[in-house]
Every structure is written in structure tokens, then in C-alpha cells.
Design a protein around this nucleic acid. Structure first.
Lengths: 226, 226
DNA sequence: TTCATACTTCGATCGTAACCGAAGCATTCC
DNA sequence: GGAATGCTTCGGTTACGATCGAAGTATGAA
């Protein structure tokens, strides 16, 4: 009867809260097991299994067997782009899931986006890298410049080791609170880890907020000027 | 519990076939009444009314009362962009709604996209306009050039009259079969109308296909070379 | 071999939302 | 005024899918 692409089908796939949680858990780019995804979605393993097979049938995710684990990832970059654009759109309509509260400002300031830094500070860091030509952004993709490698290793980041990983080194990730991009990928992960190892910041126990110490905040801000 | 934008909510809104049909009917940019949308969705007026209020609550559509009619439109351009990107994505996963059949090639060749020409011929026309600098495309948006106005009026298109309309003159619309843009807006509508008035083409009665006569096809192809 | 872990499949329950008939407003036409 | 049109609201039915317990399969460890 009707012609054209079936947007209702992918709408339905994304429309279930459990599946939406799984997909958002996967936009970090890391492969996750069924058990981890069940936990992220807040459902039992059986239910998660059913959701995962639906997402796979729909072409949104892919799985890779490894021993007795099954690692799930987004099928390709297009899925991540779609999810991110939907997040931006949802945010623009005021469809947020969090209840406004005292911890909200902290979340907007700095929080974990799966494994890397997001929020105001995350955006600021990427902006600063681009302004100082440590990272160059040719349209969509991000790349560490030749000169940038030295600056990063001065911070204690071993680029060569990170590049060996199959997960992309740099990735831009749309920030729903700032509506701008921040740095994801293994470099984004390594940087956040670096800050925590130096004692500049630690993860909040109750939420995804990243809490900076006074000294850590001072160093971070001077390291990444606007 | 969870933070971030609620993509599940807009997923659910788009995920219902009736609502998806309504939204796709609206991407042409024209305002439609509840009755027209009910017909497009294939449901009764009561059901349509319920869907429309949900879409409005979700910020996807807007309504305007006019006499005893209510005209519905997409809330803004961002909604159109989202729907189009979802259509492109759905097509890339092979989620099409039409049953493959004899009329399928005809649809890919030329069809109506609400009120303008889409498919291979639609893409070809826009490409040709851009190549000959009748229309210029600065990134996302389309604009008729100074020199282009003469060429269009030679075809029998009165640009001044079209520009008076509140609906945008030029609009690019992503083609799900070609995965490239074609020309929408009042100009796109006027051109298709023009072809049909000249007897070059007519709409198929069973589907959205546009059927060219042998002579019309010859003229069209020579008018819009690749 | 036996046990443990990781996950899928089956089966049954349950809640929600899509659906339409009927009735209720609002606006316009005669 | 009354009738017709356009749409919304209400109420009740129905169907689909999300959920989880229990059982089944596969891989790895002891």
C-alpha cells in the first residue's frame, strides 16, 4: 500500500525505554555483553536477550561471539549519528528524563559520557584542543595533529599505545546539555582516566557527575583556556 | 534515574504506523487538515485526533485554527530533517514498506513526493539546475540565482508569484531511493504541475509513480542533461 | 565428568495503547 | 433559528508486546 522507507519500524525499535537505554549505552563505541546491557537497561537477562535480537534484526546493532560472551556494538557509525541526532532533537523539545535537582548543575558542568568527559568541561576541553591545533576537525571527523602528539604525551598520554586499539582514537560526541561536541574515543577515555589518576577529579557515587577538587579544577581550567 | 534526552519518547511517537504516515504526509511542508491526515494514515477521524494531540504534545507538529478547519504542520524544519534522516537510515537498512513488483522501477524513476518530483528524475533535475547555476546550493539551503529567474520563466514559471507564498520557494528534500537531494518547495511543486499541464507526464492512478509520455521524456531529458 | 557461567528459547501473564462507535462542542451555511 | 461540517472527548474492546520464570543450549573451568 504505502511506499517508502519504514520509519515506524526504527521508531518502534528506539521507542522502547529498555532498548533506548541499551543504544545510549552503546554510543560510547565500546562493545558490551548482554549482561552489561541488561543492567544498563534495567531489565532481566531474558528480556534483554529478546530486545537485543530485535535490535539486531532491525540492523541497529551487531554481535560478535567471543568465548562464552557475546559482545554487542552499534552496527555502524550511521546508527550512532542517528541516535545522537535524536538526542539533540529530544533535548530541543525539552524531553529530558532527569528530575531537576541539586545535582543537576554538577551534571551540566562535568559528567561521564560512558567513559569520557562530557558537559561544559568536556566541550571546553575539545574546543581548547582544536583552538591550539592539538586536534584538527575536518568537518565531521577528529584527528590528532603531528604537533599535538607532543603536547598530549606531556600530559602523560601515550598516543601510540592508544592507536593500537581497534576502537577509534578520536571521536566527536554530541553533548545533549551543551548542544555541541566533546571528545570521545580512546583518547577521550584516556584523558578522563588521566585526570582521575592525578587526583584532579573523581566520579560521583550517586550519579554520572564528575567532581573536581579545587586544585584539579584550577589546573584543568589553566590547561584548557577558552 | 537515567539522565539525558528521552529518545524513547520521540521514538514511540514516530514508531506508530499511523503517526509515521501522518508525519511523512507533512514533510512536503503543506498544512493539512485532520481529515486529510486521517485518510493519509488510514484510520478514522477519532483515532487520528488522538494521534495528532500526542504528536502536538511531543512538539512534533503544530496546529493553526482557521474557520472550522484545523491545519496541521510540522512544528519546524528540525522535525522535517529528523524524519528525512530517519527515512534515509531506514532505507539503508532495507526497511521498505512496498512490496517489490512491476511498478517498483517506475517509482524509482519518477514519483510524487507529496507535491513535487522525486526519484531519479527529481534528483537529475536538481543536479542539472545546480550545474547550470539556475539554483545555487550554499551548504544546506537552496536559492534561485539572478540569472536563473530568466531560465525558469522561459519554462513558464512565474517566480514572483511563487515567492509571495509563505511556504519556502526552494527546499531540498532527501530522496530515499537515490539517497540524494531533489527539489521541493513551491518551485518544485510548480515545476511538476508545469510538466503535467504540458502533457509531458501524468500521475499513475494506483501509486505515486509519475508516468512520462515518450515525447515528454525526450523533452525532459534534453532540458535537464546530466 | 561435573559444575559454573553466559545466553537463548519457551510459555504465560499483564499492561498499555491503538482503535472505533457514539456523543459532545464549535463553526459556518442557509 | 436549524442543519451540516469539522473535530474532540468518552467509553469499552481488543491486540500486541514487554516482562520474567523456567527450561534448554553452548562454552569454559575444575
Amino acid at each position: 500500500m504505502k511506499e517508502g522507507p519504514d520509519i515506524a519500524r526504527i521508531g518502534t525499535l528506539i521507542g522502547d525505554p529498555a532498548r533506548a537505554n541499551m543504544l545510549t549505552a552503546l554510543i560510547g563505541g565500546q562493545a558490551l555483553t548482554a549482561t552489561e546491557l541488561a543492567q544498563a537497561a534495567g531489565v532481566t537477562l531474558q528480556t534483554a536477550s529478546s530486545h537485543l535480537s530485535k535490535l539486531e534484526d532491525g540492523g541497529l546493532i551487531a554481535q560478535r561471539k567471543q568465548g562464552r560472551h557475546r559482545y554487542f556494538t552499534l552496527a555502524d557509525a550511521a546508527v550512532g549519528t542517528l541516535i545522537e541526532s535524536m538526542m539533540g532533537f529530544a533535548a530541543s523539545r525539552g524531553h529530558l528524563r532527569h528530575k531537576p535537582g541539586p545535582k543537576d548543575p554538577a551534571l551540566r558542568k562535568a559528567r561521564v559520557c560512558y567513559d569520557h568527559l562530557a558537559g561544559d568541561y568536556g566541550v571546553r576541553m575539545l574546543d581548547s584542543f582544536v583552538a591550539r591545533e592539538v586536534i584538527e576537525s575536518d568537518g565531521e571527523n577528529l584527528k590528532v595533529t603531528e604537533g599535538g602528539q607532543g603536547e598530549l604525551s606531556a600530559l602523560g598520554i601515550d598516543i601510540g599505545k592508544l592507536a593500537a586499539n581497534r576502537r577509534p582514537l578520536c571521536k566527536s560526541c554530541l553533548d545533549w546539555s551543551e548542544r555541541r561536541s566533546h571528545l570521545a574515543g580512546t583518547l577521550g577515555k584516556a584523558l578522563l582516566q588521566n585526570f582521575m589518576e592525578k587526583g584532579w577529579a573523581r566520579r560521583s557515587l550517586e550519579s554520572r557527575a564528575v567532581l573536581f577538587t579545587p586544585e584539579g579544577e584550577r589546573k584543568f581550567l589553566s590547561l584548557f583556556p577558552v
